[in-house]
Design a protein around this nucleic acid. Structure first.
Length: 826
RNA sequence: GCCGGAGUGGCGGAAUGGUAGACGCAGGGGACUUAAAAUCCCCUUCCCGCAAGGGAGUGCAGGUUCGAGUCCUGCCUCCGGCACCA
């Protein structure tokens, strides 16, 4: 018998698949079911890690299964190849980002091939390819034309010493990663995309994403953060400019005892101009703005603030209340100003206590007694001490107060969202250049489509200092205005890489199109993506951006779908020794070493077997050895019996198939059913693998027995021929090898998936459990369909059951036919 | 703090409200072998018992149900995410 040598057979089949184009996916064929199986495209960081192995093993198993089921399968891969690490490598080690990236891609592509993943490599894309990113630019221009891309000033991390903008990732403990200098906030003009135009639509769309995990839908709901409330303008004493606040609790407005403004609030400085409080307020604002957002959140348990000395009038009660600047009010939320009602909001109360501001209750529970002392009552209730609104319930009061404010012109109902417009500007080199020209006389001018792509220059100064790399390249910056021809300046910001990944799965469908991002007329047969597999960490950012992008493209007439992904599957992390695998923890397992030692099939099998795919997976070598042993067992059992087996597909012999042969046949067909279901909607890949192990355990004794005659060997052949195909999605190389050895034609990857025969899924008799008062007391073997009376008689005849019911009154009998009999005795 | 998820043998895990612990690992025993490795077979939740059998048991405390790992209420612990959201 030949030894099982995974390295030899795996390499051979990988070459054979490649040569024959087994996984190529041509035009969508009419009348044939299609399946677009997509995994989140990798960032080419250097080498594959086990998270990749797991992600792509899951996707490949499903894709191979669907293909064998006769569906036309789109299974593709590419590279999310722009981004910060390439630039950091350049700054730290002087490597050229493009060279570094392409080297990494070559390494990782080879690793993916060694895993035997069945991709259509002709559709491979790389987002740093000018033929890809030109379409980022094209989309950007379409949005710019429609006002969906705009400029606004926003603060960024700024290192004064390096004279450069830093990503959050490049800031540790408020210090620059390169020079360890202090990082501050500085405002810059940047590009934004109007994702908030779709806030309501993105929220509503979640209701229809039934095949997405609830947790992701919940996270997105919170991310979009819709809240219904009111805007109310409080007149400021000795000023003509009122302060507009947003509140969801206008019913508590008679309890407002101060207004609080964010440090960034545009009116903050002017309120104190020339007043005694000016110094203190400006110092506080400067101190707050100088700190990172995370910093401000972290210690915001301490409610800091300063009084402005100015007063606003409550537009309902006419009461004058002080205006403060407070650290817990955020400019991004609502209007950047709030009315504070300490009695009915915990944060307002904290602040009031810290600064000696009054607390006044105006809402009490409708039922029950007084509110807990010293705790803000934040529920709805009924109003008191609220002028004409006293006695109303909160909800009713809200609508009356809003209506009154609207009539008087100082407020109105409004819906606020937490979702912010998407800032896409990056002051970096290794990304898509934003295709805009700044002209003194024409303003912002889009680069004409005919001039796309605006290519990244080959060489840029990448020192990490002195501003964005492109702005230091005179020959890149200097350009003639496309409109007036005058001297102008090219935009030097590049795009957030989330732009690249917002539409890449459209490009796979038409990767070489030079006239459009994709074939607008013919993409739809494949969309939406049927199954999208990736990590939970993308639950909000990427998966919101791509939903937005699809809607934006629909508005542009480029696609007809609203939602890009029918089913989302979020896989768990790969951990080892209780911690996420990472270089810093030194617990990384290298996929190549695993392949070398155990083979790709074993590595893949373990990645799928060791845990349910949505849960975290603990990588442990003993478990890998277990899978390796299983693969060897299949191989040996097959080769021991191979010569004695009837040819595949010949009819069963005339002799009766009963006893062990029939039992094996039943096991075979039950396994087919189980694996088929587990690879379908259930996505229980771990139990699919265990049931295949069971089938192998079941067929081995019959295969090895000298006593096995034609009937038994026929059943063994049937089991083996099924097992080879069931194994093909999980251990594809081994399956090809055995398929070939059995004389199968073509590739098992293209062989039809086995069918479970319904009459072998049932048997004549069935085990029925007998309980007495819910406790297991016996087991009966009864004919299928045995009625309650007969089952009861059989149960009474069982001595063990009898011992528990004798002398007692039978109160009730629960009979679940063919399953269970529960005797309730008193 | 808020949101989400998870707690089942020594371990990873299985189980549509119907036999808790499939499958695998680890451990124990046996076969084969001069021997070892590999391989094959058997046992393996805990307690009492020679056994037959009995009792307990899915983080904790309750509840619904003939019957709960599964459903409900309230807690505890761990993991992940985050946004003081007005």
């Amino acid at each position: 018998m030949r030894e099982y040598e995974p390295q030899t057979i795996e390499h051979r089949w990988q070459e054979a698949w490649d040569r024959s184009g087994v996984f190529r996916c041509g035009e969508a064929l009419p009348g044939r079911p299609r399946f677009y199986c997509l995994e989140m495209l990798p960032y080419p960081s250097g080498r594959l890690h086990m998270g990749h192995v797991r992600n792509y093993s899951i996707g490949d198993a499903v894709a191979r299964f669907r293909r064998m089921r006769g569906e036309q399968v789109m299974h593709v891969i590419g590279w999310d190849s722009f981004g910060l690490p390439a630039e950091n490598a350049a700054i730290q080690h002087g490597e050229d980002p493009g060279v570094w990236t392409r080297k990494n891609i070559a390494v990782m592509r080879a690793q993916l091939r060694r895993l035997g993943l069945g991709y259509d490599w002709q559709r491979e894309i790389s987002t740093c390819d000018p033929e890809y990113y030109r379409w980022n630019q094209w989309f950007f221009l379409r949005m710019f034309e429609r006002g969906l891309a705009y400029r606004a000033r926003r603060p960024l991390n700024w290192c004064d010493r390096c004279q450069t903008v830093l990503a959050n990732e490049q800031v540790t403990d408020g210090r620059c990663w390169r020079c360890d200098g202090t990082v501050s906030k500085r405002e810059f003009e940047q590009w934004f995309l109007r994702i908030t135009n779709w806030a309501e639509d993105l929220l509503a769309g979640l209701d229809d994403l039934h095949a997405w995990p609830d947790k992701v839908r919940t996270m997105q709901r919170h991310w979009i953060g819709r809240s219904e409330g009111a805007r109310v303008r409080f007149p400021v004493e000795d000023s003509s400019t009122p302060i507009e606040i947003f509140t969801t609790r206008i019913d508590t407005i008679w309890g407002a005892t101060y207004l609080a403004l964010a440090a960034e609030h545009p009116l903050a400085a002017s309120l104190v101009a020339g007043r005694p409080e000016e110094r203190a307020v400006l110092a506080f604002i400067e101190e707050q703005l100088g700190r990172g957002i995370e910093d401000r959140f972290a210690d915001s348990a301490v409610k800091l603030g300063v009084p402005t000395g100015r007063y606003a009038r409550n537009p309902f009660s006419g009461e004058a209340i002080p205006i403060w600047i407070a650290n817990f009010v955020l400019m991004d939320v609502g209007t950047g100003a709030i009315m504070s009602v300490p009695a009915h909001d915990a944060r307002d109360l904290d602040f009031a206590r810290a600064h000696g501001l009054p607390v006044r209750q105006v809402v009490r529970p409708t039922v029950g007694i007084a509110t807990e002392a010293g705790v803000a009552y934040t529920e709805d209730g009924s109003l008191f001490d609220s002028g004409p609104y006293s006695g109303l319930a909160s909800a009713e009061a809200r609508s009356q107060l809003i209506e009154s404010a609207r009539r008087s012109g100082f407020g109105e109902a409004t819906v606020a969202y937490r979702l912010k417009d998407w800032g896409v500007s990056r002051q970096r080199y290794w990304g898509t250049p934003i295709p805009i020209v700044h002209c003194e006389s024409c303003g912002l001018v889009g680069v004409p489509d005919s001039d796309l792509p605006v290519c990244l220059p080959d060489k840029a100064p990448l020192s990490g200092a002195g501003g964005s790399p492109l702005s230091q390249l005179a020959e890149f910056v200097a350009v003639a205005c496309p409109r007036c021809g005058g001297a102008a300046r090219r935009e030097t910001d590049t795009m957030d890489t989330f732009v690249d990944s917002s539409w890449y799965y459209f490009r796979y469908l038409d990767p070489t199109n030079t006239a459009a991002p994709f074939d607008v007329a013919n993409q739809n047969p494949w969309l939406p993506v049927d199954l999208y597999i990736g990590g939970i960490e993308h639950a909000t950012m990427h998966l919101i951006y791509t939903r937005f992008w699809t809607r934006m493209m629909k508005e542009l007439g480029l696609c007809t779908i609203d939602e890009p992904v029918r089913r989302l599957f979020t896989q768990g992390m790969v951990i080892k020794d209780g911690a996420k695998m990472s270089k810093s923890k030194g617990n990384v397992v290298d996929p190549d070493q695993m392949i070398e030692r155990f083979g790709a099939d074993t590595t893949r099998l373990f990645a799928l077997f060791a845990a349910p795919p949505e849960r975290d997976l603990d990588w442990n070598e003993a478990g890998v050895e277990g899978c390796s042993r299983f693969v060897g067992k299949v191989w040996r059992a097959f080769h021991r019996v191979r010569e004695r087996l009837p040819a595949p597909g010949i009819p069963a012999p005339a002799v009766a198939l009963d006893g062990p042969a029939l039992e094996l046949r039943r096991k075979t067909h039950r396994t087919i059913k189980k694996v088929t279901e587990d690879l379908g909607e259930r996505m229980h890949l771990n139990t699919a693998v265990s049931s295949i192990m069971e089938l192998n355990n079941a067929l081995t004794p019959l295969a090895d027995s000298e006593a096995s005659g034609p009937a038994e060997l026929w059943a063994v052949a049937e089991a083996i021929d099924a097992l080879i195909r069931l194994l093909a999605p999980f251990a594809p190389h081994l399956a090809e090898e055995l398929w070939h050895a059995r004389g199968g034609s073509g590739f098992v990857a293209l062989a039809p998936w086995p069918d479970a025969s319904p009459d072998l899924l049932v048997s004549d008799t069935v085990a029925v459990v007998v309980q007495v008062n819910g406790k297991l007391r016996g087991q009966l073997t009864l004919a299928v369909g045995t009625g309650q009376e007969e089952a009861l008689a059989a149960a009474r005849a069982d001595p063990r059951v009898a011992a528990h019911i004798d002398g007692k009154r039978l109160v009730r009998v629960v009979h679940v036919p063919d399953r269970l009999l529960n005797l309730v005795v008193g």
